Simulated assay, not measured.
Amino acid sequence: MTGPGRLAGRVVAVTGGGHGIGLETARRLARAGARVAIGDLDGAAARTAAAELPGDVAGLALDVTDTASFAAFIDAVEERWGPVDVLVNNAGVMWAGGFADEPESAAARQLDVNLHGVIRGVKLAAPRMWARGRGHIVTIASAASKLSPPGEATYAATKHGVYGYLKGVRAELRGTGVRLSVIMPGVVDTELAAGTATGAVRLLAPADVARAVHAVIVRPRFEVSLPGRIGPLADWANVLPQRVRDLLFRALVPDQVRAVAGTSARTAYQARRLTGGDDD
């Protein structure tokens, strides 16, 4: 299912690709033979990553909160290699802590990167793919697309929004040859998740998510949960009475307010990424 030949020569653009999940995804797809463009707000990090990866890889500056920047990124990729076959919407940021303590600027930043950034990517890439009758947009969302951990209220809101947006656009694109996929992992071992808890599931590695992206490109489907039981469990729980559902989620879903209380593990990340950066 995931043999290298299935991706050989495909043009793939990855947002937030200079670090974490995006970088690991770029690495895996490049090794599989894809021509990969890494876009990141930190253009130097994107170029450094591209130089270190195998195969045909380019690093470009990209601000997913700016439509002109995003359009220029896609244009540059197409000028270099031709039409983008796959766009991986990966860039994202997260503030963790009590909702009343979250700075307004942090909430606005999450909405602009996590939600509006995905919408921009879809609006810029999907019409070009539609015109060609083929293409695939893979979005890295989160288990928080269906769950709402305490301490991640705004982040969960952005991921719920991403999931809902993609469901609507998918219906509009039916029959056009353009596919949409959404990857919904639990907590992944990246800077974004520093100091947070994993709840009842194991901590994932960026390579786990990269593997899922590779697999869904080779064999497309709309929803992918990591671990696989999270999505179905969240869907099933919605049929339970509210009191029972609350007890279940309290036992399984991490309480990030409690996890980050009294720790400085997120201080540097939140100061840097929520005041003008995107990462995944």
Rank of each mutant, 00 (worst) to 15 (best):
M1R: 14
R6Q: 12
L7R: 01
R10P: 04
A13I: 03
G17I: 06
H19W: 10
H19L: 03
I21D: 00
G22W: 00
G22M: 05
E24Y: 06
A26P: 01
R28M: 06
R31T: 07
A34T: 04
I38Y: 01
D40T: 02
L41K: 13
D42N: 14
D42R: 13
A44S: 10
A45K: 12
A46S: 04
R47H: 05
A51R: 12
E52A: 12
L53D: 05
D56M: 05
D56K: 06
G59A: 05
L62P: 02
T65V: 09
D66Q: 14
A71W: 04
F73W: 09
E79S: 15
R80E: 03
W81F: 11
V84W: 01
V88N: 01
N90L: 03
G92E: 00
G97C: 05
F99D: 09
A100K: 04
E102G: 01
A106L: 09
A107M: 15
A108S: 09
Q110D: 08
D112E: 14
H116W: 15
V118I: 03
I119N: 03
A125Y: 10
G133I: 07
R134W: 15
G135S: 12
I137K: 05
S142R: 04
K146W: 14
P150L: 04
G151P: 02
A153Y: 03
A156P: 08
A156I: 02
A157F: 02
T158M: 02
T158L: 02
K159V: 05
L166D: 02
L166C: 12
K167N: 14
T176W: 13
L180C: 12
P185A: 09
E191K: 13
L192S: 05
A193P: 02
A193L: 01
L203S: 09
A205P: 04
A207Y: 07
A207L: 03
A207R: 07
V213T: 00
A215Q: 03
V216A: 04
V216M: 05
I217W: 04
R221A: 07
F222Y: 13
V224I: 10
G231Q: 11
P232I: 12
L233D: 11
L233M: 15
N238Y: 10
N238S: 14
V239R: 13
V244Y: 08
R250I: 07
L252P: 04
G262F: 06
S264N: 15
Q270F: 10
Q270D: 13
A271W: 09
R273N: 08
T275G: 06
T275Y: 06
G276N: 00
G277W: 00
D278K: 12
